[in-house]
Amino acid sequence: MALNTPQITPTKKITVRAIGEELPRGDYQRCPQCDMLFSLPEINSHQSAYCPRCQAKIRDGRDWSLTRLAAMAFTMLLLMPFAWGEPLLHIWLLGIRIDANVMQGIWQMTKQGDAITGSMVFFCVIGAPLILVTSIAYLWFGNRLGMNLRPVLLMLERLKEWVMLDIYLVGIGVASIKVQDYAHIQAGVGLFSFVALVILTTVTLSHLNVEELWERFYPQRPATRRDEKLRVCLGCHFTGYPDQRGRCPRCHIPLRLRRRHSLQKCWAALLASIVLLLPANLLPISIIYLNGGRQEDTILSGIMSLASSNIAVAGIVFIASILVPFTKVIVMFTLLLSIHFKCQQGLRTRILLLRMVTWIGRWSMLDLFVISLTMSLINRDQILAFTMGPAAFYFGAAVILTILAVEWLDSRLLWDAHESGNARFDD
């Protein structure tokens, strides 16, 4: 018995066209964080690309023209004298008006014999932002004059995390709450300039795509075929072959399989920071003279006294001054041990922890910024005066060393310790 099946006739004509040209192939790229070699397709503007294995951002879609970056830099340069030299806060102490600005706080630190601690604050609040705007201006002028731009481009990517104007702005709020127990506070004209400078700096850093600047100024022929001998440069993120001198053909720094002496430098910085954190938390970090009496505060006791007036601000200072430094030390110690013992479990967790400490590390400088600003506000000789204690130097040095330890660690070593050939990683 035959089955009668109805015929289905399409209502619209289906047209099949042959592909007349070869589909576009992607360029081969190595991930600078996990060293995976993959094919990167062509990316349009405002599109980002991520590593298929570790999800690290390979290409950032946010990109401004150099002219727009230069305009932002010149605007920031105009704001800087007002943000640093004009009063941020006014207080009335014992019937006398006192003005506080950024430069005055750094000068008070240096004047009291601790120039190293003052230079830490100076670099993060004044030096690094000033280098940022002058570097962008150098790129703008240098591109037109045919100057060598490689050193500036190499420095810009590392400079971003040292620009800490946003953290200093939080420190202004913390210092205001600490001082309000002794005097009446009012915002100064410099505060508005400083807030504007923070906003412009944040926007500029978020749109400063150094890798795209490398592509514009020093374009290189990408690798179009897969080759395990391809290496990625950690300076400019170019994937290719080393030249005859073993250097990256684009930025001219040595092109090595792994960062040289990464573990040794990381261990040295980490152990030194552990040693410095002990006096930083045991010795007094601030000293207040009130009517001839002397009151010393460690980091913890200062947080407890701050909690009596504002528990939320005390929580912020606790996280930045105690929780973050010790968390960074514990995480980095764990990561280094996992590399030495070739741990194969929990790779995803370790990668996330490394990215976390990379982002939060700079916030530990908050305590030094609060001390710097408070020193310029309260300084009335023996009637009422505020000065920093010996722990300030140890704390600042420990924070900087932990930042350097994270920067010096080559994250690809975590993958080397893991089993080879993993296309995915999980716990």
Results as ranks from 00 to 15, higher is better:
residue 244 Q to E: 12
residue 27 D to N: 10
residue 39 S to E: 05
residue 278 L to R: 02
residue 409 L to N: 07
residue 294 R to E: 02
residue 304 M to V: 09
residue 351 I to N: 11
residue 95 G to R: 08
residue 145 L to M: 13
residue 82 F to I: 06
residue 161 E to N: 10
residue 112 Q to D: 07
residue 74 F to D: 02
residue 363 W to C: 03
residue 227 D to A: 15
residue 246 G to R: 12
residue 65 S to I: 02
residue 358 T to W: 11
residue 159 L to P: 01
residue 370 V to Y: 00
residue 21 E to W: 05
residue 174 V to Q: 01
residue 326 F to M: 06
residue 152 V to F: 05
residue 181 D to I: 01
residue 374 T to I: 10
residue 311 I to D: 11
residue 31 C to L: 00
residue 228 E to L: 13
residue 35 D to M: 03
residue 337 L to Q: 10
residue 384 L to D: 00
residue 258 R to W: 07
residue 370 V to Q: 00
residue 257 L to N: 12
residue 371 I to W: 01
residue 16 V to Q: 08
residue 295 Q to G: 08
residue 166 D to E: 15
residue 89 L to P: 00
residue 32 P to T: 10
residue 356 M to L: 12
residue 282 L to N: 13
residue 191 L to Y: 02
residue 183 A to Y: 05
residue 380 R to V: 02
residue 274 I to C: 13
residue 426 D to K: 11
residue 358 T to P: 04
residue 267 W to K: 12
residue 7 Q to Y: 05
residue 279 P to R: 07
residue 131 I to M: 04
residue 9 T to N: 09
residue 257 L to I: 13
residue 270 L to S: 09
residue 342 K to M: 10
residue 217 F to Q: 14
residue 354 L to Q: 10
residue 293 G to P: 05
residue 251 C to I: 00
residue 425 F to D: 11
residue 85 G to R: 10
residue 72 M to S: 05
residue 409 L to I: 09
residue 135 S to T: 02
residue 62 R to G: 12
residue 60 D to T: 08
residue 391 A to C: 05
residue 400 I to C: 10
residue 13 K to M: 03
residue 17 R to L: 05
residue 343 C to W: 15
residue 398 A to T: 08
residue 146 G to S: 06
residue 40 L to S: 08
residue 329 V to F: 11
residue 355 R to D: 13
residue 270 L to K: 08
residue 146 G to V: 03
residue 411 S to C: 08
residue 77 L to Y: 03
residue 90 H to R: 08
residue 364 S to N: 00
residue 376 S to E: 14
residue 349 T to S: 11
residue 354 L to V: 14
residue 157 E to H: 13
residue 293 G to D: 02
residue 121 V to D: 08
residue 270 L to F: 04
residue 415 W to G: 10
residue 220 Q to W: 09
residue 323 L to R: 00
residue 212 E to D: 10
residue 164 M to F: 02
residue 355 R to A: 14
residue 156 L to G: 04
residue 395 F to G: 06
residue 275 V to N: 10
residue 312 A to M: 13
residue 222 P to M: 15
residue 205 L to G: 13
residue 125 V to M: 07
residue 413 L to S: 08
residue 363 W to S: 01
residue 125 V to Q: 03
residue 39 S to R: 08
residue 14 I to H: 08
residue 98 I to Y: 03
residue 132 L to D: 02
residue 161 E to V: 14
residue 146 G to M: 04
residue 317 V to C: 01
residue 349 T to F: 14
residue 45 S to Y: 15
residue 20 G to A: 08
residue 318 F to C: 11
residue 367 D to Y: 00
residue 366 L to Q: 04
residue 23 L to A: 07
residue 98 I to P: 01
residue 214 W to I: 15
residue 316 I to M: 13
residue 303 I to N: 08
residue 93 L to I: 04
residue 301 S to A: 04
residue 89 L to H: 06
residue 222 P to T: 14
residue 144 R to W: 15
residue 370 V to A: 02
residue 78 L to Y: 04
residue 1 M to K: 01
residue 54 C to V: 00
residue 7 Q to I: 05
residue 185 I to V: 04
residue 383 I to K: 02
residue 202 T to G: 14
residue 17 R to E: 09
residue 38 F to M: 11
residue 102 V to C: 05
residue 324 V to D: 01
residue 125 V to R: 00
residue 341 F to T: 11
residue 352 L to V: 12
residue 335 L to Y: 03
residue 240 G to I: 10
residue 22 E to V: 08
residue 406 V to Y: 05
residue 257 L to P: 10
residue 341 F to H: 08
residue 347 L to T: 13
residue 37 L to F: 09
residue 130 L to D: 02
residue 138 Y to N: 02
residue 399 V to P: 03
residue 110 T to N: 15
residue 343 C to R: 13
residue 266 C to W: 01
residue 169 L to H: 02
residue 419 E to M: 13
residue 149 L to W: 02
residue 395 F to S: 11
residue 63 D to P: 08
residue 219 P to F: 13
residue 175 A to C: 10
residue 186 Q to A: 11
residue 224 T to Q: 14
residue 154 L to T: 07
residue 320 A to H: 01
residue 372 S to L: 03
residue 188 G to M: 10
residue 40 L to N: 07
residue 303 I to P: 01
residue 119 S to G: 02
residue 71 A to T: 08
residue 225 R to C: 13
residue 274 I to Q: 14
residue 230 L to V: 14
residue 396 G to I: 02
residue 132 L to H: 05
residue 379 N to F: 01
residue 318 F to D: 01
residue 217 F to H: 14
residue 57 K to R: 05
residue 221 R to D: 13
residue 214 W to Y: 11
residue 4 N to F: 07
residue 291 N to C: 13
residue 270 L to Y: 03
residue 154 L to C: 03
residue 377 L to F: 11
residue 345 Q to L: 15
residue 157 E to P: 15
residue 276 L to I: 11
residue 9 T to A: 05
residue 327 T to I: 10
residue 188 G to Y: 07
residue 61 G to D: 13
residue 222 P to R: 13
residue 168 Y to V: 04
residue 261 H to W: 06
residue 45 S to M: 07
residue 171 G to C: 11
residue 370 V to E: 01
residue 15 T to K: 10
residue 258 R to S: 08
residue 267 W to T: 14
residue 44 N to P: 02
residue 177 I to M: 13
residue 77 L to N: 07
residue 309 S to F: 13
residue 347 L to G: 14
residue 382 Q to P: 14
residue 411 S to T: 11
residue 193 S to L: 02
residue 328 K to R: 01
residue 56 A to L: 08
residue 65 S to T: 06
residue 116 I to Q: 15
residue 275 V to M: 12
residue 153 L to M: 12
residue 168 Y to P: 04
residue 181 D to S: 02
residue 95 G to Y: 05
residue 402 T to W: 09
residue 295 Q to T: 12
residue 296 E to M: 15
residue 106 I to P: 05
residue 403 I to T: 02
residue 250 R to C: 14
residue 357 V to W: 03
residue 360 I to R: 00
residue 240 G to S: 10
residue 230 L to M: 14
residue 426 D to Q: 12
residue 238 F to K: 08
residue 14 I to Q: 09
residue 348 R to D: 12
residue 112 Q to P: 14
residue 179 V to N: 01
residue 398 A to H: 07
residue 1 M to P: 00
residue 203 V to M: 08
residue 228 E to T: 13
residue 130 L to E: 08
residue 279 P to L: 14
residue 164 M to N: 04
residue 69 L to E: 04
residue 242 P to T: 09
residue 370 V to L: 02
residue 333 F to Q: 12
residue 88 L to I: 04
residue 341 F to Y: 12
residue 264 Q to Y: 03
residue 209 N to V: 09
residue 326 F to W: 09
residue 181 D to A: 02
residue 35 D to I: 02
residue 422 N to E: 06
residue 411 S to G: 06
residue 9 T to R: 09
residue 392 A to K: 02
residue 285 I to E: 00
residue 300 L to T: 05
residue 359 W to H: 10
residue 395 F to D: 01
residue 118 G to A: 14
residue 45 S to V: 07
residue 411 S to K: 10
residue 164 M to K: 01
residue 93 L to W: 02
residue 22 E to A: 06
residue 96 I to Y: 04
residue 117 T to N: 04
residue 109 M to H: 02
residue 57 K to C: 07
residue 99 D to P: 03
residue 280 A to R: 00
residue 65 S to D: 05
residue 218 Y to H: 07
residue 234 L to K: 11
residue 256 R to Y: 11
residue 64 W to E: 03
residue 152 V to A: 08
residue 425 F to Y: 15
residue 330 I to S: 09
residue 106 I to E: 05
residue 59 R to N: 09
residue 332 M to G: 09
residue 50 Y to S: 08
residue 175 A to Q: 02
residue 116 I to Y: 11
residue 75 T to L: 05
residue 334 T to F: 12
residue 261 H to T: 09
residue 152 V to Y: 01
residue 151 P to K: 01
residue 243 D to Q: 09
residue 196 A to G: 09
residue 254 P to Q: 13
residue 31 C to A: 00
residue 215 E to F: 11
residue 400 I to M: 08
residue 122 F to P: 00
residue 291 N to D: 02
residue 138 Y to P: 02
residue 226 R to K: 13
residue 279 P to I: 15
residue 189 V to P: 06
residue 275 V to Q: 11
residue 392 A to L: 03
residue 363 W to V: 02
residue 318 F to N: 09
residue 203 V to N: 13
residue 371 I to G: 01
residue 97 R to A: 03
residue 402 T to H: 06
residue 339 I to N: 10
residue 358 T to M: 13
residue 155 M to W: 02
residue 416 D to Q: 09
residue 153 L to S: 09
residue 133 V to I: 14
residue 49 A to H: 05
residue 341 F to M: 11
residue 424 R to W: 04
residue 51 C to Y: 00
residue 377 L to S: 02
residue 346 G to S: 11
residue 335 L to T: 09
residue 83 A to W: 02
residue 152 V to N: 07
residue 316 I to P: 15
residue 412 R to H: 01
residue 207 H to Q: 10
residue 8 I to S: 04
residue 52 P to M: 04
residue 306 L to F: 02
residue 264 Q to C: 03
residue 385 A to S: 10
residue 424 R to H: 10
residue 284 P to I: 03
residue 392 A to Y: 00
residue 199 I to V: 10
residue 60 D to Q: 05
residue 426 D to W: 10
residue 171 G to M: 03
residue 201 T to P: 06
residue 76 M to A: 03
residue 397 A to M: 06
residue 393 F to W: 06
residue 15 T to E: 08
residue 138 Y to R: 01
residue 10 P to N: 07
residue 315 G to A: 15
residue 111 K to A: 09
residue 200 L to K: 09
residue 237 H to N: 12
residue 68 R to E: 03
residue 417 A to V: 11
residue 239 T to S: 13
residue 34 C to W: 00
residue 67 T to Q: 04
residue 126 I to K: 15
residue 251 C to N: 00
